[in-house]
Design a protein around this nucleic acid. Structure first.
Lengths: 242, 242
DNA sequence: CAATTCCTGATTGTATACAAAGTACAATTC
DNA sequence: GAATTGTACTTTGTATACAATCAGGAATTG
């Protein structure tokens, strides 16, 4: 297994922040799996720092909901359940709708140009069939809208909620059947914002989330079935082996 | 000045959580004022613990946005600006609307009864003219709605955003001219939820936030004018004194 | 053989020690 | 007298030491 996280980033940041970013990335990419324990001495050795910055990083991850604390047992990576994901998406649906509405009011001419470019770039990206490229183009498009709101709190919340689903970002991208509708939705959102049509923009933003939700939930169910099957399998082995 | 925070709470919680709750409360009630520095040794002595739990508590406050970190200078209580408050309220407007809509779908019969009681209790509370009593009744009413959504993430977010405005909660409560419209709005929200009228419920929830916004922003402006006046006054004194 | 108790090792929770950096104030120089 | 430099002190950043608790296994007892 990858013995070293790529722990480097900004060298002048306090170690706790470097550790925080490192661990968060490891959790979001799945390098640290749900249920896995975060043991302080172990992590400290692995990252070459003392326990103090590790602990302070864990406190932040705790508040972000990425790890859960068990008293006198320490931290472990939070499980993502279908319920917790639906909860996140339910909030995002409202906030993404708010984003496009605010964007209608506040987007600048420069941002409109950028948005058009991002919209076109996304369409081109889908033709590459490279999920990484497509995902990046998707993020770029939505980022412009979020930034256009000028609401720092909203920007922060959307980023945080998006992170919770980072692991499943590819699932709805990979499904090539949906590419056309994705491109289409982006285009409608773009055009609605340009026309200052809040209602249509918000409606499409919600639809956009709905589609993601379907893809992701399907994926989650699959994973849970697999892990359940794996569990029963290993239990069987354990029985026959003992 | 109050030399001791009332630091006690649950005795079995880790010290960092006790400190976290203590400091958060101190910030939200205004006992620790915006711009005030949080010095670790000082706080440690004052609360009778070592620096470690203080630091870990500060990490959580940092992520919550209640304190800001200045490199090599430590933490200080975050300033609340008119912009940051408008940002918070803008998000709350969307999330409160989401809350009442979800409540229309998911509220149980027991909760409906509780909501009616809370609605009536609020009306009675306004007649006492005791801001604390009124504020508590207001929180109780909204809490039932938020809980009725069953969305843990939403509940957490609303609580966090509400906290940001804790200091100003009384401002819109104190204005007795508004009491009638507050009672009225609560009643409309209650009735809309019972009738499963999402549109009306959401609309009224937004109006409810708008009214709060007006009161609070007015108060903020006043405070800033006062502190600006104070500043120029003390600068004058400094000049004449030097 | 099962259950219970006790012990040992491991891990977290807390405190303290040490290093680095920044700030304020005084002394010195122009 | 103003500006600059140097020094002492304060405060944070990091590491480590110590205490409390918990988990798991071995030994003992019924």
């Amino acid at each position: 297994m990858g013995d070293n996280f790529n722990m480097s980033m900004d060298e002048f940041l306090p170690l706790r922040d470097v550790v925080f970013n490192t661990l968060r990335k490891a959790i979001l990419t799945g390098e640290l799996k749900p249920g896995e324990r975060l043991m302080e001495i172990h992590l400290a050795n692995r990252l070459g720092v003392s326990r103090t910055p590790i602990r302070e990083a864990i406190r932040k991850l705790e508040l972000e909901g990425l790890v859960i604390m068990i008293p006198r047992r320490g931290a472990e990576v939070a499980q993502i359940t279908e319920k917790s994901l639906k909860d996140v998406l339910e909030v995002r649906r409202a906030l993404d709708a708010l984003c496009v509405e605010l964007a209608c009011d506040r987007i600048t001419e420069e941002e409109e140009v950028l948005l058009k470019e991002a919209c076109d770039a996304f369409e081109r990206a889908t033709t590459t069939r490279d999920a990484t490229v497509i995902a990046r183009a998707d993020v770029a498009f939505h980022d412009i809208i979020v930034q256009a709101t000028g609401n720092q709190r909203l920007i922060q919340l959307i980023n945080n909620l998006s992170e919770q689903m980072y692991r499943y970002r590819f699932e709805y991208i990979k499904d090539e059947n949906r590419h056309d509708s994705l491109v289409n939705e982006h285009r409608i959102i773009y055009e609605s914002i340009v026309r200052r049509d809040k209602k249509k923009a918000a409606e499409t933003a919600r639809l956009h989330i709905d589609n993601q939700e379907n893809s992701i939930i399907r994926q989650i169910c699959l994973e849970q079935q697999q892990s359940a099957a794996k569990k029963t399998r290993s239990e069987k082995e354990h029985k026959t082996g003992g």
